[in-house]
Amino acid sequence: MDVFMKGLSKAKEGVVAAAEKTKQGVAEAAGKTKEGVLYVGSKTKEGVVHGVATVAEKTKEQVTNVGGAVVTGVTAVAQKTVEGAGSIAAATGFVKKDQLGKNEEGAPQEGILEDMPVDPDNEAYEMPSEEGYQDYEPEA
């Protein structure tokens, strides 16, 4: 019985440690998101679009440190934060509304985080759909 109880105690310690790591990862992701939003706020009209992409990228980098179902929630929060940063930029006159959601080359930025393969159960990952990809044929 002692062996059984000791095993359960060790398992509990492992769960607590994993929860603490997840909590730490979420806190880091939130900190990076805040950094990115402050970065966007300090940019001029020309830099705002690039700044919004930076927020998304920093958040995406930190999301990889967070495991399990938390990833889905962090990704949703990050996307809403990026959308909010863009709205703030438009409201303050840093950028025109028609410039939001495009990178410096004018290509749409939507789907940055949505296409990231995420499995809350950590069982399997699927690649994003290939609808947006084109076949590449090298020139002879």
Rank of each mutant, 00 (worst) to 15 (best):
Y125A: 15
A30G: 01
A29F: 15
L113A: 06
V49L: 13
I88F: 03
D98Y: 12
S87R: 05
G93P: 07
Y125Q: 13
K43W: 05
T64A: 10
A85T: 07
S87M: 04
G106L: 12
Q62M: 05
A85V: 15
G93A: 06
A85F: 13
I88V: 07
G14M: 14
S42T: 08
T72D: 04
E46H: 05
V52R: 01
V71C: 03
A56T: 05
E83R: 13
V66C: 08
E35L: 05
K32N: 09
A89Y: 12
K60E: 02
S9L: 11
T72G: 04
V48Y: 14
G51K: 11
D2S: 06
G93Q: 15
G86C: 10
E139P: 09
G111K: 12
E28D: 13
V3R: 04
V63D: 01
Q24E: 06
E104S: 14
P117K: 11
A89V: 09
A29E: 00
Q62R: 12
S87V: 13
A11P: 00
T75Y: 12
G68W: 15
V77R: 03
A17P: 00
T33H: 01
I112M: 13
E114K: 05
K60A: 04
E130W: 08
Q99H: 13
G84E: 08
A53R: 07
G132C: 05
G68Y: 10
K97S: 14
V49S: 09
T64L: 15
K58N: 08
P108E: 03
K6H: 12
T75E: 01
E20I: 03
V118L: 05
E137R: 10
A90N: 09
I88Q: 03
T54K: 12
Q62A: 11
G31I: 14
E28L: 11
G67M: 12
A76M: 15
K97A: 05
Y136R: 02
Y133I: 09
V16W: 13
T33K: 00
Y125C: 02
G106Y: 14
V37K: 00
G132N: 11
V118W: 12
D115G: 06
Q99L: 07
T75P: 01
G25S: 14
T22I: 12
M127E: 11
N103C: 05
K23D: 00
T64Q: 09
F94T: 10
P108F: 06
K45E: 00
P117I: 09
T75L: 10
G31K: 13
K21P: 00
M127R: 01
D2V: 07
M5Q: 15
G111N: 06
G7S: 10
V118F: 12
V82S: 05
Q134G: 07
A27E: 14
K96N: 13
Q24I: 03
S87L: 11
Y39D: 01
P108M: 10
G68C: 01
E105Q: 04
D115Y: 12
E104G: 04
G93Y: 10
A56H: 02
E57F: 03
G25R: 13
K32V: 13
G7D: 01
M116I: 09
K58S: 04
K12H: 09
S9P: 01
P117A: 11
N65L: 08
D115C: 08
E28P: 01
Q62T: 10
E137F: 10
K60H: 13
A85W: 08
Y125M: 01
S129T: 10
V48T: 01
M116C: 06
V71R: 06
E105Y: 14
Y133E: 08
K6R: 14
V118E: 13
E61N: 05
E83M: 02
E137V: 02
L38A: 12
G7R: 15
V16F: 11
G73W: 13
T22Q: 00
V70W: 15
V37N: 00
Y133Q: 09
D121S: 13
K58P: 01
K23R: 10
V70D: 01
T44K: 01
K21H: 00
D2T: 00
T81Y: 13
T72L: 02
P120N: 05
K32H: 10
G67P: 06
G7T: 15
E123L: 05
A53S: 02
V49R: 10
V82K: 08
V15Y: 10
T75A: 10
A19C: 01
E110G: 13
S87F: 11
E139A: 09
T64M: 14
M5F: 11
E130T: 02
T59N: 01
T33P: 00
G41F: 12
T59G: 07
V71L: 15
A90L: 05
L113T: 04
V16D: 01
K43G: 01
A85K: 01
D119I: 14
K97Y: 13
G73V: 09
V77G: 01
V63I: 14
T54L: 14
S87Y: 13
V63P: 01
T33I: 15
G7L: 02
V77K: 01
L38P: 00
A124W: 07
E137M: 03
P117M: 05
S9Y: 14
A18K: 01
T44D: 00
K12F: 07
E104A: 02
G47D: 06
V63M: 02
S129P: 11
V74L: 09
V26M: 02
G132W: 08
Q79D: 06
V74Q: 01
Y39V: 01
D115E: 05
P108G: 00
K34P: 00
K12C: 08
K34M: 00
A76H: 10
K32L: 08
V66M: 12
K60W: 04
Y136E: 15
E83W: 13
T72C: 13
Y133S: 02
E61P: 03
V49C: 07
A11V: 15
E104H: 14
V71Y: 15
Q62D: 01
A76N: 08
T44P: 00
T44Q: 01
K43I: 15
V71E: 02
T22E: 00
K43S: 03
A69P: 02
V15C: 08
M1K: 15
E130C: 06
M1Y: 15
A124Y: 06
E114I: 13
A107F: 13
E130A: 12
Q109G: 02
K32D: 00
L100P: 13
A107M: 06
E104K: 01
K43N: 02
L8C: 04
N103T: 13
A85C: 04
A140R: 12
V118A: 09
A19P: 00
G36H: 04
V40A: 05
A19R: 04
L8N: 00
E104C: 15
T54P: 00
K102Q: 15
A91C: 07
G7Y: 15
V55E: 00
G93V: 12
E57G: 07
G41Y: 15
A89G: 02
K10N: 10
E20S: 09
Q24L: 07
D115P: 12
V52T: 03
E137Y: 06
T54H: 05
V71Q: 04
M5W: 14
K10T: 08
E123P: 09
G47H: 14
V70T: 03
V95D: 09
Q24C: 07
S9G: 07
V16G: 03
A56L: 04
K45F: 14
V118C: 06
V52C: 08
T81K: 01
Q109C: 04
V95I: 12
G86R: 09
D98N: 15
M1P: 15
H50P: 02
V15F: 03
T59R: 01
G47M: 02
E123T: 07
V71K: 04
E57S: 09
K102I: 02
Q134F: 05
V3H: 12
K60L: 15
K43F: 14
K12E: 00
A91L: 11
D135H: 09
D121F: 08
T54R: 04
N65F: 07
V55A: 08
K45Y: 01
A53H: 07
G86P: 03
G7K: 13
S129N: 05
E83Q: 03
G84P: 01
E46D: 06
K32Q: 04
Q99S: 04
N103L: 10
A90K: 14
N65G: 04
A107Q: 04
L113C: 07
T81N: 02
M127D: 02
V74S: 02
A89E: 02
V71T: 04
P108H: 14
A91F: 11
K32C: 02
D121T: 13
V70P: 05
F4L: 10
E126Q: 07
F4W: 05
G31Y: 11
Q24W: 15
